[in-house]
Design a protein around this nucleic acid. Structure first.
Lengths: 220, 220
DNA sequence: CATATATTTAACCATCTGGTTAAACCTTAT
DNA sequence: ATAAGGTTTAACCAGATGGTTAAATATATG
């Protein structure tokens, strides 16, 4: 099926990718890498099969087709972030702390999962048309959490009023772009040394630094 | 040639896409849209030819191959931003004003040029490996401008010291993600109404609002 | 007008790519 | 052991895709 005309991808076949060593798991792991590297249409089933060390027919026997495989990859890669954020944020009790946690959850999800930036960026680039509904809803629920934090903070007079969706894009955009951008920057040797050195001393994690910036931006 | 293995795209053939109505111009305009919609590997030469209203062979006669066409598109789309920023920023004299202009230049480039977000996002996603050298250098020069503004501001005690590259990723990431993300958000009907309404009242332009946020984030 | 040159086109082509098939190969239970 | 059902595989296929060719058509030049 043509990528552009894909229906909002349902997950036709749920894979049991939990058991490691199992064929399905090997396929999913390979698919994850290849899709992250090359995007949907840049990814070829033969390469996934090769990298997973299985025959292409096995791949089709275990999953179904490219669409389904892609949907499963996305679900596996982005699916758990939402719940994690919800749980972690609930533990804090003031908006400022909650916001820090919110940002750090996203940052560490990205850290533990280097496939998130390329996949998310490309999904955004293509208008999010092929995100499985589950994932789209997950992401919506995340923004809703932020909405709550910001509203609470504004009521309590801690935050100035700012558009929540813009803040969310700021958080996610900053983290994803930095994660993908930093390595590119390092390779460009002609860049002024000042740029490279300055960025070394991101005190603490990226999540912490973004947290500081965003808080400065919205605190009263 | 395979996308993944493309050499750092040189622009093999410079097109004269300036004269409107001319075949080359029609091709480039079509290519721009199609590449923005579907990415490099999702784009088919036949579609570009069809959308440009010319025969595919004409396309090859005028340009060369997919790679060259893509490089030309990128160059046309991203090539002029750098110079524009440099000139505009020079007009202001204090760091704060300069930073506002810096951000607004990027925001309006994106505004006037809706192909920037998808193309930039996908380029970042694939590690910027196929940016023509010219464009990569342009982008580097942009960051260098920001570096200057921030250093100046820090010296004068107006800004706190923050990693310049991170700030740049923050600006660009926020603008691009918001531009591409907002329309997606609008389509998700199940989202809490609060989210949609809140974001309507972005007072002024996106550039202004991002400018305000970033300044709050780094001003002493 | 005639000749040369630049541009466009329909028809091709080799290769790639997602997907299938039928047979071989395990694993398990009787 | 063997029948049965699940799993893997080599070989295959139809359609798509980037790219080419040689002829046809404008366009400019003498």
């Amino acid at each position: 099926m043509d990528h552009r005309k894909r229906k909002p991808a349902l997950i036709k076949k749920q894979m049991d990718f939990r058991e490691p060593g199992k064929t399905a798991e090997k396929i999913l792991a390979a698919a994850r890498k290849v899709f992250a590297e090359n995007g949907y249409s840049g990814t070829h089933m033969d390469e996934i099969a090769a990298r997973a060390g299985v025959n292409k027919a096995t791949l089709y026997y275990q999953i179904g087709d490219k669409d389904t495989l892609y949907a499963n990859v996305i679900h596996q890669v982005l699916g758990n972030v939402a719940q994690d954020i919800a749980e972690s944020v609930a533990k804090a009790d003031n908006p400022e702390e909650k916001l820090k946690i919110y940002i750090n959850c996203i940052a560490s999800a990205v850290d533990e999962n280097p496939e998130i930036p390329p996949i998310m960026m490309r999904e955004m680039a293509s208008g999010g048309t092929h995100l499985p509904r589950v994932v789209a809803e997950d992401m919506a629920s995340v923004v809703t959490i932020l909405l709550g934090i910001l509203e609470d903070g504004t009521h309590k007079g801690i935050f100035v009023e700012k558009a929540p969706f813009l803040i969310h894009m700021m958080i996610v955009g900053t983290i994803l772009f930095y994660k993908k951008g930093a390595p590119i920057k390092e390779k460009q040797l002609w860049l002024p040394a000042a740029l490279k050195s300055r960025d070394k001393k991101l005190m603490g994690s990226l999540g912490d630094e973004v947290g500081r910036l965003v808080l400065r931006a919205i605190k009263k």
